[in-house]
Each structure stands twice: as C-alpha cells, then as structure tokens.
Amino acid sequence: MTGCLEARDLVFAYPGSNVPVIDGLSLAVGAEERVALHAPSGSGKTTLGRLLAGYLAPLAGEVLLDGAVLPRRGMCPIQLIGQHPELVCDPRMRMRDVLKEAGTPDEEVFDGLGIRREWLARYAHELSGGELQRFCIARALAARARFLIADEITTMLDAVSQAQLWRFILDKAAADGIGIVFVSHSPALVSRVATRVVALRASASASALFLSPRA
C-alpha cells in the first residue's frame, strides 16, 4: 500500500447544534481505492467530505494521511471537488490565475479534460458549469493531490461530459496513484466507478437535520 487516508472516530456537529452530524465515524481508504459513500440525503456525506479535506475541524477524532496528522498550513494533499464549481472560482480572476493558485497543470491534463486554451483568458461567469468543473479538476490535480474527494461532481452535467470527466479522473488516478472518495446519487455511476461502497449509518441526527431548512 503506497498511502492511506484514515479517519479515526470523527465527531462533528455544526455550531449551535447539539446533535452531531457525524458521530464516531472511522474510515480507511488506500491510494489504489475508489470508495463510494452511500447514505440517504442529509446524513452527512458532504460534511464528511469537508472534514476529510480539512475544510472543517472535527470536534473529536482525527484525519490521518500515512499515519500522520494533516498539516494545518500549506498545500493540503487531500483536495475536495464539489458540486458547484462556480462557487469555488473567484469571479474576479481569469481562469489562468485561478489555476495558477494551485500550480501549473500538465499539458496532458488540459487535453484529457477537454479544456480549450482560449478559456484560460476568461472569467468564471463566462464559462458554463461543465467547463468550470474541468478547471476545478485540473486545479486539484495541479495541487498534486494524493486523494480526491469528489462530492457529486458530475451531477449537473450531461451524460457525455460525465463520462469524459470520470474516465479522465480514473485514468489519472490509476497512473499517479491517487485515491478517490466520492459521492453520487446514481447507482449506475457508483457501480461503474467504485471499487468499494461504504454505507454511512444514518445517525439519529439525520432526521433532525432534515427538518431544518438548511439541511
């Protein structure tokens, strides 16, 4: 095993809430694995993704990479790609600069993802969601991520783009030894992509979350 992403006894509750969204969750993912998270909506899949990628700090437990705690500063080796690419690109930056923030992607990444060179000079709102999502994937790869957390990344795309993006990610992951944790509501996509499916136990908090409008 070349690397391992491990979550140990994670507990997380949103501020102001007494009910944990994630309660004592443990998970280990190898670098060669593609793990699908399966759970009903509102049971904390997105929250888990944000915990793994370091966007949220757990109340208890820890996220380990190769047995070591994630660095607080510097480039995070676990990169999250989400469902809304338009929210994670600064609207006042050209796409070239958006990419530069992570580093310089390889030329093959541009070709593999179908990013046209002329898009580099555009702003985020001048590109469609599908085009932006390609940049988000390229950015995560340019950051030399060792693990990708993909949260419904192709939900908003048509099937052709979905197939194109996932095929590229799978090839790249296999070539560079990048582990993948992903969420998808589509059983067909899960069975295509996943090497393992992890079912999150719907905690007692799930129903409570569902009642609140922000769930």
Partner: peptide, 11 residues
C-alpha cells in the same frame, strides 16, 4: 455515455 451502457466519452 450513460454509466449503465458504455460510459463512452465520445469527444
């Protein structure tokens, strides 16, 4: 391109 069919990414 559907996952249950070919999952073919025709360019």
């Amino acid at each position: 391109a559907l996952p249950e069919h070919g999952f073919v990414a025709q360019p």
